[in-house]
């Protein structure tokens, strides 16, 4: 399944490394990645493929939520089709 992930947080060193290594540990493939800092807020969007992972979508989601709580990040992961539908005719 293709999913869009968004990560926002106060900017600091190591956010990308932390999130990406978690994804790598779970076997999730990153297809595309955008990152910027908007008004001091770190903002990253990733397009990922969860079908390469042996974990279920719910497990991946739970692991990300757990990490976001621990490291004070705001992480969302959602199926990519919703964004295509809302922003493309």
């Amino acid at each position: 399944m293709k999913a869009v992930m968004t990560v926002t947080a106060s900017d600091r060193v190591g956010i990308i490394a932390g999130v990406c290594s978690l994804l790598a540990d779970m076997g999730v493939n990153i297809l595309d990645l955008n990152q910027t800092v908007m008004q001091g807020i770190f903002t990253m969007t990733l397009l990922v493929d969860t079908s390469t992972s042996s974990h279920s979508f719910d497990d991946i989601r739970s692991a990300l939520i757990q990490r976001s709580e621990k490291e004070n990040l705001n992480i969302h992961i959602q199926r990519a089709d919703i964004f295509d539908a809302m922003h493309r005719i």
Binding site: V4, T6, L31, D32, N34, T36, T43, T45, L47, H76, A80, I82, F83, D84, M86, H87
Partner: peptide
């Protein structure tokens, strides 16, 4: 890849 501002717009719609 989708536009970063489109993605954040949707996330904000849901969150806020």
């Amino acid at each position: 890849m989708l536009n970063i501002s489109d993605i954040m717009q949707t996330v904000n719609m849901i969150d806020h």
